[in-house]
Design a protein around this nucleic acid. Structure first.
Length: 776
DNA sequence: TCAGCTCACACTTTTGAATAGC
DNA sequence: AGCTATTCAAAAGTGTGAGCTG
């Protein structure tokens, strides 16, 4: 049985972006655990001027429901089961659905307004993985990022009432490894880690987007793409959970037994044909035995390895003695069933007790069903599930909301999710000041991922127990009493009841709608937590060491060698992300602590492929541990079932704030002023610069694309045209609207593509055509 | 040689058209 | 004629394993 130590992150309730901080008391520093803007690609996709202006302060009428948008992952428990093993997603040339799928519940929308739901999938890190020795290891750098595609929920746009009245499923989204895919599937690289994101965008009308947007990320939905399952446990889970794979279950017609039997029959038929004179076609048993003695060597060899064919005429069950005695030794207990059963016992679903004798598949189904029945089904007991998690056991990063009434971990009686907005609103309200905060997240050198590090150890003593990498734990690290350790019990329910919030209002303005509660320390801390995360950026796991260093609860030994300095808690901190839009390059977060020193993070060994603290950094990979050859610590803890959300309002605030703060550039990053980043052209098409990576944000903000959204919009950029930006880690692509000829929607689009702006320079030049044709 | 990928296969569920009944 | 329920076949979604590829 694992304890909180092994999966401490489970103990935290849903956290807002602003809460996702690593904090080290001894070395007061804080950095966002999960960059809010990381999931705000949609927000970035919208030109700032198309965004609804932030409501005026102190105007109750301006508080819109969007400020309270919440999203839950209905089948979070199922996802967590996969995550505990190390979720693998098959990708095929023709496209493969995700399983588990994304089943979501939305609330807090304005019933009368229309919204568009988007799904995109971003890399979690910059590594390629290989399944070795029962675990996933990073074996090299990631392949060049492919054009990002965004899947628009077929119901989009639909009213808030529509979205809130049903479970939202993205099961139609398909994943492919075909870089030339023309079906509109999401293109991913095999053997890479990814994180799905969901974006809720308010659509004022079909063609004109406006209003705010919210982005949600469920850490447990991260996965590793494969073309064939590597981990048998995943296969078992899939078979037991996916109805389409029912045939592969133990009792299915496509089970190994049945397949062997079929193969045997086929061989028997061949033998019968070849040796029909000596065989009684009605006695398959004889047929099976004869070949060994009378058939060819090949036949004998083949049949010798097969179980005797059950006699179809005698009603003899293959599962009976016939197979048991002859088949290759099988595990007495279906691993999948055992796993599921064990999970169930831990999950604590009310009906779990009655499921002891159920087949794994049924258990899985019940779990699936229970997912849709409400959070309480598993929330309070989910930690147990995580006991089997292969996630690193690193303690959860402490929330900067130290003063927040974090639910007692031991209190499992209340599975209800914490209403953070309420909590926060009840606390002191400090207008988030985002200035003077500077964090620089350059990209780690590719070499970082070249040192294999076992991500998932299948050699755990228990088949269902996955221990974390020992070196990630430092038992001697003193606990930070000011930041209570995560509750021993996962408020998974809480965590799954993710809340999207409008984190920030305009700088220097009171928060609109939902005031952000402040911890005693630094109210703005939380807000600062909601820093802009470079969209479309491959997550960079390498900040992990930094976070680890800053997180006492991680129990990580200090990394003195790490050439970085973390801003003291409450100290002014700025986050500079080379790949974020220029106007977001500098996130300035005013800290409550007056006079605190200004600190900037520097990763000297980072490459030019600047990457912001990634999702990987935000949540420790389930069974995937990013290797950090040069970095002593694994990923920061991951917040299972927590949803990180960011709203456009924050972006705006950040954007505004950034304008007030000096821009911080990575040391090894080119000066934006001299960067080859293409200048924004007003009313024109961006110049194609084959040597420069286009930043999607820039392209997206480019007016040349706006006519597609709203022809009436002026073609000139807003006065706040962002300055030139640094190269992004990967080439990114502008959003494009493509009409789906097959869609029954009245809306003339279904999929969004962040299209490669300079596809000619991209290996996948075919994407160039996507600008002129709808690709579905 | 081998890791990774592709494809055909058998099975299952889903979907939608056709039909029957009220 | 219109609606609902049922049936059926095709389509689509599964994992498997052999074969191919670089």
């Amino acid at each position: 049985m694992l304890s909180v130590e092994m999966y401490p992150s489970l103990t935290l309730g849903p956290q807002r972006i602003g809460e996702c901080f690593y904090r080290d008391r001894q070395a007061p520093a804080q950095m966002p655990l999960f960059p809010p803007a990381a999931c705000d690609v949609a927000a970035k996709a919208l030109p700032p001027r198309m965004l609804v202006p932030p409501p005026a302060p102190n105007d109750p009428s301006t508080k819109t429901p969007k400020d309270e948008v919440k999203m839950e992952l209905e089948n979070a428990s199922l996802w967590k089961q996969f995550t505990s093993v190390g979720t693998e997603m098959i990708i095929t040339k023709k496209g493969r659905r995700m399983f588990p799928g994304l089943r979501l519940k939305l609330s807090g929308l304005n019933p009368s307004l229309r919204y568009i739901l988007l799904l995109d999938i971003i890399p979690l890190d910059n590594s390629r993985y290989r399944f070795q020795s029962g675990g996933w290891q990073a074996v090299g750098g990631a392949e060049a990022r492919l054009p990002d595609r965004v899947f628009i929920h077929p119901d989009s746009p639909a009213t808030g009432a529509h979205w809130q009245s049903r479970t939202i499923s993205f099961h139609h989204a398909k994943l492919t490894n075909n870089t030339l895919d023309s079906q509109g599937h999401i293109i991913l690289h095999s053997l890479h880690r990814y994180q799905p994101r969901i974006h809720v965008i308010e659509a004022r009308d079909v063609l004109r987007w406006g209003g705010g947007q919210h982005s949600f990320v469920f850490p447990e939905t991260q996965f590793l793409t494969v073309t064939a399952y590597q981990n048998n446990k995943i296969t078992e889970l899939k078979i037991n959970s996916n109805p389409f794979a029912k045939g592969f279950r133990e009792d299915g017609m496509n089970s190994k037994k049945q397949r062997d039997a079929r193969q045997k029959r086929k061989i028997s038929d061949v033998i019968e044909t070849l040796d029909i004179v000596n065989c009684d076609p009605c006695d398959s048993t004889e047929l099976l035995q004869q070949p060994v003695t009378t058939g060819t060597d090949l036949q004998a060899l083949t049949l010798a390895s097969l179980p005797p064919l059950p006699n179809p005429s005698c009603g003899f069950r293959p599962e009976g003695a016939c197979y048991q005695d002859t088949l290759v030794p099988e595990q007495p207990l279906d691993l999948g069933q055992a796993f599921m059963a064990s999970q169930m016992s831990d999950i604590g679903i009310s009906m779990a007790g009655g499921m002891q004798g159920m087949p794994g598949s049924e258990v899985a189904n019940m779990i699936e069903r229970s997912d849709t029945m409400g959070e309480p089904a598993y929330t309070s007991t989910f930690p147990a599930v995580q006991a089997n998690s292969s996630f690193p056991s690193a303690p959860l990063p402490q929330s900067s909301f130290s003063s927040l009434p974090i639910p007692d971990s031991s209190d499992t009686s209340n599975p209800q999710p914490i209403d953070y907005p309420s909590i926060l609103s009840s606390s002191s309200t400090t207008t988030p000041l985002l200035q003077q905060t500077s964090f620089t997240f350059p990209t780690p050198p590719p070499s970082n991922s070249c040192s294999p590090q076992t991500l998932l150890s299948s050699s755990s003593p228990s088949a269902n127990t996955y221990h974390t990498i020992p070196e990630t734990i430092n038992p001697h690290t003193p606990a930070d009493t000011s930041f209570p350790a995560p509750p021993s019990t996962c408020q998974s329910g809480l965590q799954d009841q993710i809340s999207a919030h409008s984190l920030l209002a305009q700088p220097n303005q009171p928060l609109q709608g939902e005031p952000i509660a402040r911890g005693n320390n630094s109210p703005s801390d939380q807000s600062s937590a909601a820093f802009i995360y470079p969209n479309s950026l491959p997550a960079n796991p390498d900040p992990a060491p930094v976070t680890a260093q800053s997180l006492p609860n991680y129990n990580h030994p200090p990394a003195p060698s790490l050439p970085c300095s973390l801003p003291a808690h409450g100290a002014p901190t700025s986050f500079a992300f080379p790949s974020v839009p220029p106007h977001m390059q500098n996130l300035s977060f005013s800290n409550v602590s007056p006079g605190s020193a200004h600190h900037a993070l520097h990763f000297q060994n980072m490459s030019h492929q600047a990457q912001a603290p990634s999702l990987a950094a935000a949540f420790p990979p389930s069974s995937f541990t990013h290797p950090s050859s040069s970095l002593p610590h694994p990923h920061p803890p991951f917040q299972p079932s927590s949803c990180f959300a960011v709203s456009s309002s924050f972006q705006q605030s950040v954007s505004s704030a950034s304008s007030m703060a000096p821009t911080a550039y990575p040391q090894n990053m080119p000066n934006p002023s001299t960067s080859s980043y293409p200048p924004v052209e007003i009313g024109g098409i961006p110049q194609f610069n084959p040597t420069a990576h286009y930043r999607p944000e820039m392209v997206l903000h480019h007016p040349s694309l706006l006519p597609q959204l709203d022809p009436s919009l002026p073609s000139n950029l807003p006065s706040s045209t962002p300055p030139p930006a640094l190269y992004s880690a990967f080439p990114s692509y502008p959003l494009r609207l493509c009409q789906d000829p097959h869609s029954s929607l009245s809306i003339p689009f279904r999929h969004l593509y962040r299209q490669h702006q300079h596809g000619h320079a991209h290996p996948q030049g075919s994407y160039l055509d996507m600008s002129t044709r709808a690709v579905f």
